[in-house]
Structure formats: structure tokens, C-alpha cells
């Protein structure tokens, strides 16, 4: 197990270098960041050259990348164009994104698995058909449509929730964005749970559990659910990694100043340091989340062993 973890961590190094370089090159290819800096106005060539020199943008791409990587390993992710260190931006953005991710994840787990179990146990009945239709609708509609519609209905028309999230992002105001962010994954979780429950309820070991004279509740919780949730938890783990990467669309709709918001700002202003810095952290979070999922998988299913 320990060896496996070390091997996986070592594998992350080339992935890490590769992704950061690709992002670096892609942002570079977007165009001249200094021009973007000045907005619609054409920059004074002398001033532009000075800024370029200050930011090291006159060096070849590979040198810029090398300088950037040097900074990363000394804990310096560079400086955003507005003068703030990118690490400071991350410190502001991450707690908000984590809160939002937590809210969304809770919805996914409770509602997603709940609906999945409900429809899996009552296959072919009304409840099952209802859940299947609802999830299909949610999956088919783009998030921004769901987001704006719910924002309008709950936030504006009925006034039941905050239409936008105030600074500091209190949990209460994150409920609506949380459910919007969770909606699609939630639908997938419900469908996945339903499928595995339906499949496993015909399994031989469930029949054995019934033949042992166990109460129905115990058959379901100890035998059926324990097995059925393995693929669901794997999915949830990967999704948690994705949620922690922020939500560009949802954060924009509800004006949440999280990772997605700053990343968007960075992209719009071609702010290389911000974009690469944020994406670098996201890559690490995602890789770690994936590793955790794989390890968790071995804990849940004793038939899987890593060496």
C-alpha cells in the first residue's frame, strides 16, 4: 500500500509539469497580455515595453516558464496584474469555494443517494419512473439555464433565498448555488445508485442474507447497500475533486468570489500568473482527490489490493 502511494505521488510530477506547461503555453498563445492590460486603448509602446520587461514577458516562453517554476518551488506563485500575490488571491478564494463545494457535495450525497435507493428498491413503480424522468430532465438542461431560472424564481420572484451571495459567503446564502452546482452530479448519483441497487438486489449474497433470516432492514443496510455504494462513492470522490476546482458558471451567476470567479477574471485579462497559479493548485487538488478515491476503493472492497 505504502509503495503504491509513493508510486502514485511520483507519477504526479510529470503530470504536474505537463499540465502547468500546457496552461502556460495556452495563456501565452491567447495574445499579448500587456495589450489586454490596457483594454480597448492602444498602449504606448514605450510603456508597454517597460511593463513587459518588469514582468519578464520579453523573455522567450521557455525561460518565462522556467522562472515561473522556480518561483513555485519557493512558494511564490507570482503576482497578479493588480499587484496582489497570487497566493493571497488563493487564500481569499479557496475558503469560499470549499464552502460551496461542501454544500453541493452534501446535496449530492443526501438527495442523490436517497433518490437512487428509493427508485432502486421500487423499480418500475411510480416513484422510480418519477425519479428517472426528473434526473433525465436535470441532466439535459445546461447548468446556466437551471442556475438563472432558480435564481430568478427563488431569489427574485419568491424571495425565498438570496439571489446573489454577499461577501463572506455565509452558508445560508450558498444553499441555492449549492443545489444548482450539485444538480447534474446529483442526477448522475441517483441514476448510478439506482442501477447498482437494482443489480445487487438480485445478487446471490442478498438471497443468502434473506435465507439466514435477517430482518429486511439489516439485509438492505449491511448487505445490499454496503455493496451497492462502492461505485457511487468512487464517483462522488472524483466529483468532490471537480467541485473543489471551483465552478465558473455557478460562481458567475451568483456572484460568488471563489476560485471560479478569480479564474474567470484571470482568463479575461490574460493574467498569466493568476490563471497558471490557480490551475496549478487545481491540478494538485484533483490529482490528490483521485488518489484518495483509489485508496478508498481498496478500503471499501477487500477484493482490491494495491501493491
Amino acid at each position: 500500500m505504502g509503495r503504491y502511494v509513493i508510486r502514485r505521488l511520483l507519477q504526479m510530477i510529470p503530470v504536474f509539469i505537463g499540465t502547468t506547461f500546457i496552461i502556460f503555453a495556452m495563456v501565452h498563445a491567447l495574445g499579448d497580455p500587456v495589450a489586454a492590460f490596457f483594454g480597448d486603448k492602444a498602449p504606448d509602446p514605450a510603456a508597454a515595453a517597460q511593463i513587459r520587461q518588469q514582468l519578464g514577458l520579453d523573455n522567450p516562453l521557455i525561460v518565462q516558464y522556467g522562472n515561473y517554476m522556480k518561483g513555485i518551488f519557493s512558494g511564490n506563485l507570482g503576482t497578479a496584474f493588480n499587484g496582489q500575490p497570487v497566493t493571497d488571491l488563493l487564500k481569499i478564494a479557496y475558503p469560499t469555494t470549499l464552502k460551496l463545494a461542501l454544500v453541493a457535495f452534501t446535496f449530492e450525497v443526501i438527495i442523490g443517494i436517497g433518490l437512487g435507493v428509493l427508485s432502486g428498491m421500487r423499480r418500475g413503480r411510480l416513484a422510480d419512473t418519477g425519479v428517472m424522468m426528473m434526473t433525465l430532465i436535470v441532466i439535459s438542461i445546461p447548468t446556466f439555464v437551471i442556475g438563472y431560472v432558480l435564481q430568478y424564481l427563488f431569489g427574485v420572484k419568491w424571495g425565498l433565498a438570496d439571489a446573489t451571495v454577499p461577501p463572506g459567503a455565509p452558508f445560508q446564502s450558498l444553499l441555492l448555488p449549492g443545489i444548482v452546482l450539485a444538480s447534474v452530479s446529483l442526477a448522475y448519483v441517483a441514476r448510478l445508485t439506482r442501477t447498482t441497487i437494482a443489480e445487487n438486489s438480485k445478487a446471490d449474497y442478498v438471497r443468502t442474507a434473506v435465507a439466514k433470516g435477517l430482518p429486511r432492514r439489516r439485509v438492505v443496510t449491511h448487505h445490499l447497500l454496503r455493496n451497492s455504494l462502492i461505485p457511487v462513492i468512487t464517483f462522488l470522490g472524483t466529483d468532490l475533486g471537480a467541485l473543489m476546482g471551483g465552478a465558473l458558471v455557478t460562481e458567475r451567476i451568483f456572484n460568488i468570489h471563489g476560485v471560479g470567479y478569480y479564474l474567470y477574471q484571470g482568463i479575461v485579462h490574460q493574467d498569466t500568473s493568476t490563471v497558471v497559479g490557480f490551475v496549478t493548485v487545481l491540478v494538485i487538488v484533483f490529482l490528490l482527490a483521485n488518489l484518495l478515491v483509489d485508496l478508498l476503493y481498496a478500503v471499501l472492497d477487500p477484493r482490491i489490493r494495491y501493491a
Binding site: A211, K212, R303
Partner: peptide, 24 residues
């Protein structure tokens, strides 16, 4: 009937690998 199962009558199944729960 549930209380009779396992205590007074029991069943042995064909394929023990699939009939035993893999995660316990």
C-alpha cells in the same frame, strides 16, 4: 417465517463465492 429461517431451517447454496458477501 423470518425467525424460522436460519434457526430451524437453513439453506446451502450452489455457488459459495457469489452466495457469500464479498465485503464482509
Amino acid at each position: 417465517r423470518r425467525k424460522i429461517r436460519g434457526t430451524q431451517m437453513a439453506m446451502i447454496f450452489q455457488d459459495a463465492l457469489s452466495s457469500l458477501n464479498p465485503v464482509h
